[in-house]
Design a protein around this nucleic acid. Structure first.
Lengths: 339, 339
DNA sequence: TTGAAAGCGGTACCAC
DNA sequence: GTGGTACCGCTTTCAA
């Protein structure tokens, strides 16, 4: 069963490819193809279950009604959720979405961008590894429509939709301060990611504002591919002298989860001995013991806005960049202690 | 900045498209293109950062080195993880992966299959909505390479890689029996999904084997889009007379999570009043109170095998179908009670 | 109202 | 060794 082509239809109906194409693309009336011919074509196509070849169509049109989405890791629930949202939203505007993971590698990200371009995507939504400045600049230079999400390059003028990392971390820190903690630490990754810097900055800034000098040993940094044992070590250091923290803000949901594991293993009581807040959520954070206070990230809004902005750009004509910073909301539960 | 094409290179170097194509595809030596020419071409291409157009290439070749992945919902951590695994694995064999969510809709799934085909993917991995028998049959008929994962059509002969749903549910049920429970119920979705049927069957069978007749009101079924309040109602019914269960097996990880929420709200003690086991995991199930006993699904293996089988098929020549059922492992924690 | 033909960017066969 | 060219399947302009 060979795929049916336009030419096949044309031959079998004894009309030209051109007419068939016009009719099947809904331009029949406007191009004054006779009702009868239109009817025959449509009927035949439906009957034979004709499907246009996207490859050929894209090649000819230079357009594919497809947008590409590149994320660091689709296996991370955060990006998976955003991806899903983007997909539904885009679909409602008639766009398909193809996604891929860069694995936090700048090189891979660059490769993916090229693959997607050469596949003829009309636009790109990228949660960048931030190790790929060159390629982003190039995209900008050729005026290819794209929107950065979650991660962006502060010094490059682009469209972006991000959350208020600094503000979120500030909220988290303030909450711990409110419950009477003073020796509050921050656990993050060593990675050079702007979002992490900003979260750290939000924490530092808040501490400073409240007259508490943050000591170097209050901030723990782990490798991206840390083992649970690394976390255990880190936590052990943070809870014992000289740091002797009484509160911790975790920079990501998975850091918070493994941090809790470590705390439990060390038999540190939460929130009595150590209060904690997670930046980012996990679906069971309300079921843990204690339930985890977390900074809820505006996933849906982020996905929606990214698509909206991209579509604006695809429409063409837009020249200035959209730079949106979405608020996140603190979900207060028991882990941060009570006021 | 217009995209550089093969023809551009050819013109600027005063040689033919054909030669450029040959060289850039690494067939220079075999086609006896002079070293000098090869050098010039490669040099030039690198300098100008030439990237072949995948669309054109695919159209011409009828091959794209891409495999398509269709899942019900990429926002579900289960599928997101599998997707990630499939992506890495495929990549190592030189394949790109494009994925999309069907949203459990047979129609959408069918659409996606067609889109992917017309985009020239070389093969397909599908976690089917199971509302799309027709399309799957058609794929089979045209001998298009594909592998079903997680969900399959028992009566259609295809490649598939699934987990042992019946066995997993049996393990879960046995564990509850071991801890002395007798009135064990099962909470699942109304959806007509083979995996769910099999899990239910595994539970029923085990109960029967142990001489405990399962009463109708021991099995709760929720709509796919259930609200937390529906779950609450369901649980309330199951724990009170006449059912008065002392153990529950939840058919999916998210059912287990919201089931726990409901139990907590109803102030039912776990595992004292109700012991529970979840089919499927969530990343924080070890941090909940109590930690949740769950059937660990072989995500990685499933993804890996799917890719391996698909690649075998792409190689061609394979005619008989691979039907693999992977074992899952019970992770015992406190929620199922102690022996 | 319809058809012929060029072109999108590659690949590959066949001459020279 | 290298070049010409047909073709992949579709869109679109122009002519009839």
């Amino acid at each position: 069963m060979k795929k049916l082509t336009l030419q096949d239809i044309a031959s079998q109906l004894n009309i030209s490819k051109a007419t068939v194409s016009i009719v099947l693309n809904g331009h029949g009336d406007e191009k004054r193809v006779s009702k009868a011919t239109q009817e025959r074509i449509i009927q035949f196509a439906r009957e034979k279950n004709y499907r246009a070849n996207h490859l050929a169509r894209g090649l000819s049109l230079g357009r594919s009604d497809t947008i590409g989405l590149i994320v660091p890791n689709i296996g991370d629930i955060y990006f998976a959720r955003i991806a899903r949202r983007i997909e539904s939203k885009a679909r409602r505007s008639g766009y398909n979405v193809v996604y891929s993971s860069s694995g936090e590698s700048g090189e891979r990200e660059s490769e993916l961008i090229h693959t997607m371009l050469s596949r003829g995507v009309d636009g790109l939504i990228i949660a960048s590894s931030q190790k790929n400045r060159e390629e982003i600049l190039k995209l900008k230079e050729i005026r290819f429509p794209f929107v950065l999400i979650d991660r962006f390059y502060p010094e490059i003028e682009t469209n972006f939709v991000v959350e208020d990392n600094k503000g979120g971390a500030a909220q988290a820190t303030k909450q711990l301060l409110k419950t009477g903690r003073k020796r509050i630490g921050f656990v993050t990754l060593k990675d050079d990611l702007e979002v992490l810097h900003q979260r750290l900055e939000g924490y530092r800034h808040t501490m400073q504002q409240n007259g508490i000098p943050v000591e170097d040993n209050w901030v723990g940094k782990l490798d991206y591919e840390y083992a649970e044992s690394d976390m255990l070590e880190q936590i052990r250091t943070l809870v014992s002298a000289p740091a002797k923290l009484d509160g911790i803000v975790f920079a990501t949901h998975f850091l918070a989860a493994s941090g809790m594991r470590a705390l439990k293993e060390l038999q540190v009581r939460i929130p009595e001995d150590i209060a904690l807040v997670s930046f980012g959520q996990m679906s069971a954070f309300d079921l843990t013991e204690p339930p985890v206070t977390s900074v809820a990230q505006p996933l849906d809004e982020l996905g929606d806005r990214a698509v909206e902005i991209l579509l604006e750009n695809l429409g063409g004509g837009i020249t200035d960049h959209r730079r949106e910073i979405l608020n996140n909301r603190l979900e207060i539960r028991k882990s941060c202690g009570t006021i």
